[in-house]
């Protein structure tokens, strides 16, 4: 299926082009928009972005692959991003990661078979005083976690009861992108 920007992304793309003296500079913000629309940077999406920016898909892939937030493969509905850096480590991030692995039967970088969850280790999320922390879908922070709290969050997400009210509100109002 050929990919094309949605009307909203097209608008933003046109606006972005007016904000920089050089076309290439819109690449990062644009890839964020596309990833939010498609869920990941599919080969079709990358080719399309390339054609709009007059850049080769290889070039775009080279840039995108430098950044940990850009995903070349589909991810779960909920991506659990646990901070593994110093302050979170001191406060027990490894037990949070262990709990998630135990509950979901996946390792870092993997997605559950039902497509619900992915697990990622990430670096310092700038919330070190409330360590250990986890972000879900690059959005909601869950702080001062314990294995017990982690279990509640995963259970709630699994049962459809949203552990991320703020995020849900955004999706509802179309304001996530």
């Amino acid at each position: 299926m050929a990919y094309k920007f949605s009307a909203k992304t097209e608008d933003k793309f046109q606006w972005l082009l007016t904000r920089y003296p050089k076309k290439d500079a819109v690449l990062l913000p644009l890839l964020h928009l596309v990833q939010e629309e498609v869920g990941y940077l599919s080969p079709e999406a990358l080719s399309y972005v390339g054609s709009r920016l007059e850049l080769s898909p290889a070039r775009i892939r080279e840039v995108a692959s430098f950044y940990s937030m850009f995903k070349m493969n589909p991810k779960g509905k909920y991506v659990l991003q646990v901070c593994q850096t110093l302050s979170c480590y001191l406060a027990g991030s490894e037990s949070v990661i262990a709990k998630i692995k135990e509950m979901l039967g996946i390792k870092e970088g993997e997605t559950t078979a039902d497509g619900m969850f992915s697990l990622e280790r990430v670096e310092c999320l700038a919330s070190c005083s409330t360590a250990p922390v986890m972000q879900i879908n690059n959005w909601e922070y869950h702080e001062t976690l314990t294995a017990e709290k982690t279990k509640t969050i995963v259970d709630e997400l699994r049962s459809g009861k949203c552990a991320m009210p703020y995020y849900a509100e955004r999706v509802e109002s179309g304001g996530v992108a």
Partner: peptide, 12 residues
């Protein structure tokens, strides 16, 4: 003066 917010993408 024009200000534009530019998002990074995960690289220290």
């Amino acid at each position: 003066l024009d200000i534009t917010v530019h998002p990074g993408a995960g690289a220290y």
